Amino acid sequence: MNYADMHVRDDTYLVPVTLPYIPGNEVVGRTAEGKRFVGLTLGGGYAEQAHVHRRTAWEVPDDVSDEQAVALCLQGNSAYHLLHTVADVKSGQTVVIPAAAGGVGSIAVQLAKGIGAKVIALASTKEKRQLAEDLGADATLDSTSENLTEEIKEAASGPVQVALEMTGGPTFHAIAAALAPHGRLAVYGYASGQTTDVSTKVLMEQSISVSGFWLPSMFGDRNALPTSMKALFNAVRANSLRPVLGHVYPLHEAGAAHAALAARTHIGKLCLDTAG
């Protein structure tokens, strides 16, 4: 499960939702031949049987669990390409990562540290900030702070070169204001429900760039996702990447899982088990 499922339910997703509709964009399971695959779908995941395109499905190594594999599929790929493809993070740069205890954020913290970046992690609770610190973040900040821009700059000892953003609204503006000249902002969501207009004056004053990212835009690239999935599988197998796993709900408790996701009090990847 992920926040895209919430947007689909509310019909606030990037593409219109036509009813009837089965949510779920990431699945792990076995083929009729018994091979274990993880794959991305455009809906249809909350089901006993799901169809995936061979270009967006990958055989899971034996030493990677179902829960680890499904956490890598959408959120791991997103974190990888936000850092490598969109923001082009380099060793020594400072990166702001929001929702650092969430699915994308927790993986992005670890991948950014693997690149050699300094990571400033944002999270809304003390428990979540502690998790981000345990994952390697150099500094952790309360994402709900009214002085977020100044606190980011203080933690970074100055403006930052790269920031990821998925909240929207005032948080978007606070993070953008913390960027150094020629800084890069990679936007991949609006969890607050508020889409945000960007002032060209702000872009020009600081010569910053803002890039949007939506993982399905990568589906047509024959090399992008196989490259990132291979790197993610290898990192998990080498114990240099630890997907943060949360509760697994039986499929008939999907409503309770959505409630937990909406409350934003959970930690780790939430999954549904169709066998339950």
Rank of each mutant, 00 (worst) to 15 (best):
N2C: 15
D5L: 01
D5N: 04
D5M: 00
M6F: 04
H7T: 08
H7S: 08
T12W: 08
P16H: 13
T18W: 04
L19E: 15
Y21C: 08
I22C: 15
P23D: 03
G24W: 05
N25S: 15
V27W: 15
V27N: 07
G29K: 03
G34I: 07
K35R: 15
V38S: 02
G39C: 07
L40M: 09
G45W: 02
Y46M: 07
V52S: 02
R54A: 09
E59V: 03
V60R: 08
P61A: 02
D62M: 10
V64P: 02
V64H: 01
S65C: 07
D66C: 08
A71D: 01
L72M: 06
C73F: 14
Q75A: 07
A79L: 07
H81L: 05
H81V: 06
L82H: 09
V86F: 06
A87P: 01
D88M: 06
K90I: 11
S91F: 12
T94I: 05
T94A: 07
V96D: 03
P98E: 11
A99R: 02
A100E: 08
A101M: 07
G102R: 03
G102E: 10
G103I: 09
G105P: 05
L111Q: 02
A112Q: 00
K113M: 12
G116C: 08
K118G: 01
I120S: 10
L122H: 08
K126C: 10
K128F: 03
K128I: 00
L135W: 00
G136E: 12
A139F: 09
D142I: 03
D142A: 00
D142N: 07
D142V: 04
T144K: 12
N147H: 13
L148E: 02
T149Y: 09
E150F: 13
E151I: 05
K153M: 15
A155I: 10
A155V: 09
A155L: 11
G158Q: 13
V160Y: 11
V162H: 01
A163L: 00
A163R: 03
L164R: 01
G169H: 11
F172I: 03
I175M: 12
A177L: 06
A177Q: 14
A180F: 13
H182P: 06
R184A: 10
L185D: 00
A186E: 06
G189T: 04
S192A: 05
Q194E: 15
Q194P: 10
T196I: 00
V198H: 10
T200Y: 15
T200S: 15
V202Q: 12
L203Q: 07
V210F: 02
S211M: 12
G212K: 10
W214K: 15
L215F: 00
L215V: 02
P216T: 05
M218F: 11
G220S: 11
D221T: 12
R222G: 01
R222E: 10
N223A: 13
L225F: 02
P226T: 02
P226G: 04
T227M: 10
L232E: 00
F233S: 02
F233E: 01
N234H: 09
N234V: 09
A235N: 11
V236K: 00
R237C: 08
N239H: 12
N239V: 08
R242V: 11
V248K: 07
Y249P: 04
P250A: 07
P250M: 05
L251A: 00
H252S: 12
H252K: 10
H252F: 04
A254V: 01
G255E: 06
G255T: 05
A257S: 11
A257G: 06
A259P: 03
A259Q: 09
A262C: 07
K269L: 13
L270Y: 08
D273H: 05
